[in-house]
């Protein structure tokens, strides 16, 4: 009996300890494009602020947005905007979402190193809608194009479709399970084409990072040139967002302030993303006051 009592006290204590930790732990969830960056940011943040815990997990923007709607996380990473339907769903459940833009992302289009093409936005659209099926039709070496893209739970999938294709993806596009898999596939595939966040290709070898022109006759620019992304000359750039429940306070506000600080933005650049243009700095002030 005595032993049982001791055991139950120990168990109860353990439960208390784990509860305390879970309560202090900031849960961040969502976009696979943002995960590396936010993980890095949280590591530096935790080093500077001992006793604070942040857990960052991926799963895609859709997963993160679903989590914030259901109150299962504190911050949702999203590489796309929330749909009006989702915002409505959230407010029905008492979650009043606010958006913060933490970084700019140039979405890079990649091909195999043996196929150094430059493309216009229009050509990329045609390729992914499978209106063009051979590289010789768009100035490449020739060979049947293999399409690689993300799965439909990815914000990148939705952004690329809505902004570049403005139509349906070809049914033959291979739906890969994350950015890294696309990079891996295109490295091996001489006639492949894929799209991934710039952070994933900055240090990758064996790839051609396609220079893209907004239209026929416009200058071709590379997503590796940060000035072009910031100024909007590079045509496939997008804001990377975080969604929070209501005006952030306490630990959430503290972490977001760190992300937007000069130190945080330096990490953003180191991870291969781009600094916020003034328009989004103003937007954040208006949205969450940070």
């Amino acid at each position: 009996m005595k032993r049982f009592l001791v055991l139950s006290i120990v168990v109860a204590l353990l439960l208390c300890v784990s509860n305390v930790q879970a309560g202090d732990m900031l849960q961040i969830k969502g976009s696979d494009t943002l995960i590396n960056l936010v993980q890095r940011l949280s590591e530096v943040y935790m080093q500077k602020n001992p006793g604070k815990y942040i857990s960052v997990t991926g799963g895609g923007s859709g997963t993160g947005i679903a989590a914030i709607i259901n109150g299962k996380c504190d911050i949702a990473n999203a590489s796309r905007l929330m749909k009006p339907k989702e915002v409505e769903q959230a407010s029905k459940g008492g979650v009043n979402v606010k958006r913060v833009v933490v970084a700019m992302d140039g979405l890079s289009v990649i091909t195999n190193a043996n196929n150094p093409v430059n493309l216009t936005v229009d050509q990329i659209g045609k390729i992914y809608r499978s209106e063009v099926s051979d590289w010789s039709e768009v100035g490449g070496k020739g060979g049947k194009i293999t399409l690689y893209g993300r799965q439909s739970n990815s914000g990148t999938f939705v952004f690329f479709r809505d902004a570049i294709l403005k139509g349906e993806y070809a049914g033959t596009m291979r739906r890969m399970n994350g950015n890294a898999q696309i990079v891996e596939a295109v490295k091996q595939d001489k006639t492949g084409i894929g799209y991934v966040g710039v952070g994933y290709v900055k240090k990758a070898k064996g790839l051609n990072i396609v220079k893209v022109a907004a239209r026929e006759g416009a200058p071709y620019s590379s997503p590796l040139n940060s000035e072009d992304v910031k100024s909007g000359t590079y045509p496939i750039a997008r804001p990377l967002n975080q969604y929070v429940n209501g005006t952030p306070m306490g630990a959430v506000a503290d972490f977001i302030a760190f992300e937007l600080s000069d130190e945080g933005q330096k990490i953003v650049e180191e991870e291969g993303f781009f600094l916020l243009p003034q328009e989004y700095v103003d937007f954040n002030k208006k949205s969450v006051g940070l």
Partner: peptide
């Protein structure tokens, strides 16, 4: 590869029922 198009042969990418549900 999980391409949703109708496969024409064993050398084409396929997407099974299980992977569709999982994705």
């Amino acid at each position: 590869g999980c391409a949703p198009a109708m496969p024409k042969g064993f050398l084409d990418s396929v997407r099974t029922m299980t992977s569709t549900i999982a994705i």
